[in-house]
Design a protein around this nucleic acid. Sequence first.
DNA 1: TCATTATATTAGCATATCACAATAGAGTGA
DNA 2: TCACTCTATTGTGATATGCTAATATAATGA
Lengths: 120, 120
Amino acid sequence: MYEDWAERWRALGDPTRLHILRLLSIRDACVCELVELLPVSQPAVSQHLRKLKYAGFVRDYREKSWIFYALRPDIPPAITQLLQELSIPDTEATWLRSHQVGASCSVPGAVEDDSLKVSE
Amino acid sequence: MYEDWAERWRALGDPTRLHILRLLSIRDACVCELVELLPVSQPAVSQHLRKLKYAGFVRDYREKSWIFYALRPDIPPAITQLLQELSIPDTEATWLRSHQVGASCSVPGAVEDDSLKVSE
DNA sequence: TCATTATATTAGCATATCACAATAGAGTGA
DNA sequence: TCACTCTATTGTGATATGCTAATATAATGA
């Protein structure tokens, strides 16, 4: 009976997933953007996103070549509020706000702009 | 940086610990009372309490032979609120409210009253 | 002090979790 | 269709978690 709730809490119990949620609180992002901003591999990001989706914290939608993830609007306000308390490095917030959605991944025709890259 | 928060969330990510917190939201309880109400062994309860204590959700204090655990008053209201949404079986709530603190454990001089026992 | 009770700790096992590398699947656009 | 990119899945290994049984520690009271 408590297991369902525990599973939801557990989804928040990983630093990488908290990081992802915090990034998504700035704006929707596609997987490849998250991969650029996070210090883990693409499969790791993918699996974290799956857990967050299953737990009901994010939803995904396709747009062109990318699959975007977004915070679900129906997250309990209490949790949203607690997430807001997580600080986020200025570099990351700036990166997300200054990049056009999807513009960071090397898809044909995408803008190449490494000047603001956080990693590497 | 997110690890500290993740650890706190993780403490909530187990059904037995949620159960414990829910019970403590009714009244303080000693370990042996919790052991009676929970379907796990005494060492398991003890270890869960240690995690909850470390995560800052509960405090403990000694009284006579028993060590009581109590919800900490400084839990973020958002979390307290979410905990309130967990239902609790009437049997357990009744048991806790009808028993005198500490009266259920077989200490010399303690009242023997199995009539309201939940388990066995 | 000694026996008893309450709680904590340790040891050991089964399972879950998280990471990466490798691979598979699905769109896109030429 | 083919080549390329993006994302998901699978396999595997290291570590963490949760449980019980056994043991240790601490307080009580005769």
